[in-house]
Every structure is written in C-alpha cells, then in structure tokens.
Amino acid sequence: MTMDLKQGPVPFNPYTANPKVSRTSYYIYEAPVRLWHWINVVAILVLCITGYFIGAPLPSVGGEATFTFVMGYIRMAHFIAGYVLAVGFLFRIYWGFVGNKHSREIFYIPFWRPNWWREVVFEARWYAFLAPYPKKYYGHNPLAQLAMFLMFTCMTTLMIVTGFAMYAEGAGPGHWSHTAFGWVIGLAGNTQNLHTIHHYGMWAIILFVIIHIYAAVREDIMSRQSMISTMVSGERMFKDDAP
C-alpha cells in the first residue's frame, strides 16, 4: 500500500508503481539448493539421533530375539539417512558446477584474496560487538562462508568417508562401498579409530548446527538482509537502500 496524503490509501498496482523504486530482493538460493538444504536437515537429524544410539544403545528390550529388531531398525534408519546425505551431497557438488555463483560458496574459500580475509575480520568484529553496523551481502558473508566450508563441507565429507568405510566393514569385499572406501579401513588400522573419529564428527556437526541456527536467527533480526525466509523462497531481501 502506498499512501497519498491528501486522498487516503490507494490500492498498490505493480504496473503503475514508480519504476524507479530500487529493487531490494535478489534470487540467491535456487530451488534445488533449497530443497537439498531441507532434505539435509532431516537426514542430519536422523543421523545424529540414530548414530548416538548406535554408540550408546537404548536400554535392553525383553522378549525373544526372533521377534525384536530394535537395534537393527536404528541402524537401518542410520544407513538410509546416510545414503540420503551422501547422494544429496553428490548432487549438491554437481549443482555447484551448474548453479549460480552462490551455489559454489560452500565448497571453497578464496584463501589467496587478502580482501576476503579483511572481510572475515570485519564480520568477526561485527560478531564481537566491535563493529557498529553490519554490511550487506548477497550470498554468505565471508565469516559464514569460512564456517560453512570448514564445519559443514569438510565435516560432511569426513563423515561420508568414515561412515561408508564402516558400512563396508559389514558389507564386505565385493560391495561397492568396500571397493570405494575399503582403503579407509586399511588407513585407519584398528577400525575402533574410525568409530571414534566418526563419533567426534557427529559432535562437530552438532556444534555446527547450534552455531548455524543461532547465526541465521541473529542475522535475520540484526543484519540488513533477510536470512531464514531466503532459504524458503530463495529471495534475499535488503532492509534499506544504503550501500
């Protein structure tokens, strides 16, 4: 609604609206990226819960072993969610090649660009309450990109590699996972190491989730652009026209 001071409110008409009004919304996250994000949310949730109970099982159930399959179902859910995560991750890598430039942000950091590191420092200052006002970013801010790369992309890769290596232990030689990830079993030596690393990886991802959700909510309120709705609609809204 626009307001005409003399005649009261008039209905908004996009065709007659002033074309000089600056555009404040940009299409950042394409539909496949958003879909992948929310599928991943479910997969990681299932993986963390079932994974925790594989390491520290629930209290024993009674009855005949023939008729119960509690641990079996927990492990099955873990494996299915693991496949979803891995296939989704492969698709996401593919989309990094064919998608827009923001779809590539989580897969690298511009390590050799001094300006990027200056921006990282600026964002760190913003989070440390030292910078009075935030800046505007179309995609991830540099600090967010760094966190996504290290805590999400690298950790997910580690979890997929160690996870499927342990899956290969049960599946045995001849299974694709043994062909693809059997080398990890040899590398780990005692596979108890793999279990320990995989377990730490889970906690690293839980830490990531805590920070990720907090940062998204905080930025949605405090920053000069939209955050949470952007991962739903793909549109990045800016709250002001200032540069």
Binding site: A56, F129, W203, I210, R218, I221
Partner: peptide, 28 residues
C-alpha cells in the same frame, strides 16, 4: 569418551550462544 567431550562442547556452545544472543539483544 567422545560423548563426554562432545556433550561438554555442545553445552558450552549453547551457553555461549545464549550469552551472545543476550548481548545482541541489548545492542539491538
């Protein structure tokens, strides 16, 4: 164990997030 260390870190992160959120609210 991994669970004790991970749980402690997650709790610490939760407390840090809450403190940071409080400070952010004041700033806002």
């Amino acid at each position: 164990t991994a669970d004790q260390i991970g749980g402690t870190l997650a709790t610490a992160a939760g407390v840090a997030v809450a403190a940071h959120a409080g400070a952010s609210a004041v700033k806002r």
